[in-house]
């Protein structure tokens, strides 16, 4: 991938801990406009020590709500990531693909609680 823009997660989150959905949203808000413009993005996890699924769901999984799998494959690469974290990212990505394929069903979710009796 040539001429990609390097998005450094550490810089956006402000530290080595990527452990909240809110921080994941901040990363998403940086990546999504670049992808909309057709830019190529290198998502760097340099100096990130801990990340969790809620963060990755917001930062990366959410991209599948707007972009096709082909677009994401063509425009994003991941770098400077620990093998253990890569495994979690893979789970998040695979899960997101299924989540958005079934979106219609998920969106029918009922908002009302069904009683307080056990």
């Amino acid at each position: 991938m040539n001429n990609e823009i390097i998005v450094r997660v550490y810089d956006i989150v402000g530290g080595p801990l990527c452990v909240s959905a809110d921080d994941g949203q901040k990363v998403y808000d940086k990546i999504a406009p670049l992808l909309r413009d057709g830019q190529k993005v290198a998502l760097s996890f340099f100096q990130v020590k801990t990340m969790i699924s809620a963060f990755l769901n917001a930062a990366v999984g959410q991209l599948y709500s707007e972009f096709t799998e082909d677009q994401i494959r063509e425009r994003i690469l991941v770098k400077d990531i620990d093998p253990e974290d890569l495994e979690l990212l893979k789970r998040v990505v695979d899960n997101a693909k299924v989540y958005f394929r079934n979106r219609e069903k998920f969106d029918e979710a009922w908002k009302e609680e069904v009683g307080d009796e056990e």
Partner: peptide, 30 residues
């Protein structure tokens, strides 16, 4: 939308891919 028991709710929640999230941020991995 089902009045399921607390035990059944936990069983459902720990299954891979199950999530109560409905918005643009997926869930069901943690």
């Amino acid at each position: 939308r089902q009045r399921i028991s607390s035990v059944d709710a936990i069983k459902w929640a720990i299954e891979a891919r199950n999530t109560t999230k409905t918005g643009p941020q997926p869930g069901g991995v943690g």
